[in-house]
Computed example of a mutant assay.
Amino acid sequence: MHICVQCVTVALALIGLLAGQSAAADWANGERIAERWCAGCHVVAPGQSRGSDTVPTFAEIGSSKRLDDDALTAFLTDPTHSRMPPLSLARSEIADLVAYIARQSR
């Protein structure tokens, strides 16, 4: 049996590319989640005029050196934190929300 090494290499590269695209977070969906679940307390977008002054804006969270994507994901995944009301978000929704928050620091 003869296996074409170049064919296998190309196939693996395509599989990796497709897997990366399907796993990529959707910041636009994160924006919709933020508007629905977070805008009551946080300023989630530049044009938003109301939010609590006791919580950080998404732009502040996104530019925080302490809250990188992994730390923010861990915070949002942990249902026991007491700072926010309990969120019932799927991991993909959390990834989308984190992508949107990161985008706010630009």
Rank of each mutant, 00 (worst) to 15 (best):
M1E: 01
I3T: 06
I3Q: 04
C4W: 07
V5D: 04
Q6F: 07
V8L: 14
V8N: 00
T9D: 06
A11F: 12
L12P: 00
A13Y: 04
A13T: 10
L14F: 12
L14V: 14
L14H: 00
I15Q: 11
I15P: 03
I15D: 00
I15E: 01
L17D: 06
L17V: 10
L18M: 14
G20H: 03
G20Q: 05
G20W: 07
G20Y: 02
G20L: 12
Q21K: 08
Q21Y: 08
Q21T: 11
S22L: 15
S22C: 11
S22D: 10
S22E: 13
A24R: 14
A24C: 08
A24Y: 03
A25N: 03
D26T: 09
D26E: 11
W27N: 07
W27T: 09
W27A: 15
G30Q: 03
E31Q: 13
R32S: 12
R32V: 11
I33D: 06
I33C: 05
A34D: 01
R36E: 14
R36T: 13
A39W: 01
G40W: 03
C41L: 04
H42I: 10
H42T: 07
H42D: 05
V44T: 15
V44M: 04
P46S: 11
Q48E: 11
Q48K: 08
Q48G: 10
S49D: 09
S49Y: 00
R50S: 14
R50D: 09
G51T: 05
G51F: 01
G51V: 02
G51D: 05
D53V: 14
D53Y: 08
V55P: 01
V55W: 08
P56D: 04
T57K: 07
F58K: 02
E60L: 12
E60A: 15
I61L: 15
I61F: 06
S63D: 10
S63H: 08
S63V: 08
R66C: 00
L67V: 02
L67A: 08
D69Y: 02
D70R: 13
D70W: 02
A71W: 04
L72F: 09
T73R: 13
A74D: 13
A74S: 09
D78C: 07
T80Q: 09
T80E: 12
H81L: 10
S82L: 14
S82F: 04
S82P: 09
M84R: 10
P86R: 10
L87R: 04
S88L: 11
L89V: 09
A90N: 05
R91Y: 02
R91M: 12
S92A: 14
I94Q: 08
I94E: 05
I94L: 06
A95M: 08
A95P: 03
A95C: 07
D96W: 03
L97T: 06
L97Q: 08
V98Q: 04
V98R: 05
A99Q: 03
A99L: 04
Y100H: 01
I101S: 02
R103C: 00
R103P: 00
Q104G: 00
S105P: 06
R106G: 10
R106T: 14
